[in-house]
């Protein structure tokens, strides 16, 4: 572990000030960052502990939505009565991730910022453009079973590993960010994570000195909510493919179809064309195939992960069929 200066932040402005320092990182639950520091994947010289600046509340918003503080733990969020009642896809996605011990420590903001578990990213003696820009991508031509089939670049084929953000994407949640000047800005979760492009070291839109203060959920809608995570072992494994679905049926037709996909890309994947295709149409396997065609347009495997393309199609069929059955 590289030696670092540790500072405890006492307020959001404290945290912003620390985050603005060179080579600084903020730590909340530390469930991802500490692992990376031990492996020297992350080597901050300044560590700002934001664990005691509040921000762990979960409150109703004036429009009957929900504001989840950046430091609310995953466990607290998953068991919150309003989350369970109105946003069950979020509770299910969180509970599908990690382990109870990790969820007790992991926070909302930290979860959004967790980094890829690409094997080459996590091994400092292997090339990785995300960790070491310009060193190359070890996963291309290497072992890439967990890797992305959508939105990749020739610089990086890593996936975003989380579950919670997939549900937040389907729900249309927003990320509230404190800027270094004390002002706030709000970014839809759908736009928070970035594709790798030519800047694979950038996971998301946060600038140096910024921190997440909350996630807001829109008012609940009457819909069936599902989270399906396909994985090799039944717990403590990252998704091969996951789908968050918020589905409503009215008069035998889709009235709402908000879908988001994990395990396929460098970010939780959302394609608005899928919802547009489904809404107003009657459920049928042929329709699901069309939805899958849209989802997988341009999908490209890299060898070990070729299977994700048919798997995503089959899983989409399963999820839509289940949602329709439950919604009916």
């Amino acid at each position: 572990m590289r030696p670092f200066q540790y500072q405890r932040a006492h307020s959001i402005s404290d945290a912003s000030a620390i985050a603005a320092l060179p080579e600084a990182m903020l730590i909340a639950g530390g469930t991802n960052l500490l692992d990376m520091m031990k492996l020297q994947v992350a080597t901050p010289s300044q560590l700002g502990d934001i664990g005691r600046i509040g921000l762990d509340g979960i409150q109703d918003t004036s429009d009957r939505g929900l504001r989840i503080g950046a430091l609310a733990t995953n466990t607290a969020t998953a068991v919150h009565p309003r989350v369970r009642a109105d946003y069950p896809v979020l509770a299910r996605a969180i509970l599908a991730g990690a382990t109870q011990q990790l969820r007790n420590k992991a926070t909302t903001g930290g979860n959004l910022c967790q980094r890829t578990r690409c094997y080459y990213f996590m091994n400092v003696d292997q090339p990785c453009n995300k960790r070491d820009p310009g060193s190359g991508c070890g996963a291309i031509g290497g072992v890439n079973k967990l890797h992305a089939v959508l939105g990749t670049s020739d610089q990086c084929i890593a996936t975003y590993p989380g579950d919670m953000a997939v549900a937040l994407t389907a729900l249309g949640a927003k990320v509230v960010i404190a800027k270094s000047d004390g002002a706030e800005r709000t970014v839809p979760v759908r736009d928070f994570h970035l594709l790798p492009g030519d800047t694979p070291w950038r996971d998301n839109v946060l600038d140096q000195g910024e921190l997440i203060v909350a996630v807001t959920l829109p008012p609940p809608v009457a819909a069936t909510q599902l989270y399906r995570k396909v994985r090799e072992r039944s717990s403590y494994a990252f998704a091969l493919v996951s789908i968050a679905a918020v589905i409503a049926i009215d008069d035998g037709k889709f009235a709402r179809a908000d879908l988001a996909f994990g395990g396929l890309a460098h970010k939780p994947w959302h394609d608005p064309r899928i919802g547009e295709l489904l809404v107003g149409a009657a459920p049928s396997p042929a329709l699901y195939d069309q939805a899958a065609d849209l989802l997988l347009e341009g999908a490209e495997g890299h060898g070990d992960n070729d299977f994700k393309i048919p798997l995503a199609r089959r899983t989409l069929h399963a999820v839509l069929a289940e949602a329709v059955e439950k919604a009916a």
Binding site: V230, R231, T315, A318
Partner: peptide, 8 residues
Amino acid sequence: NHYTGETR
């Protein structure tokens, strides 16, 4: 699982 091939 018929759709996903997961075995338990």
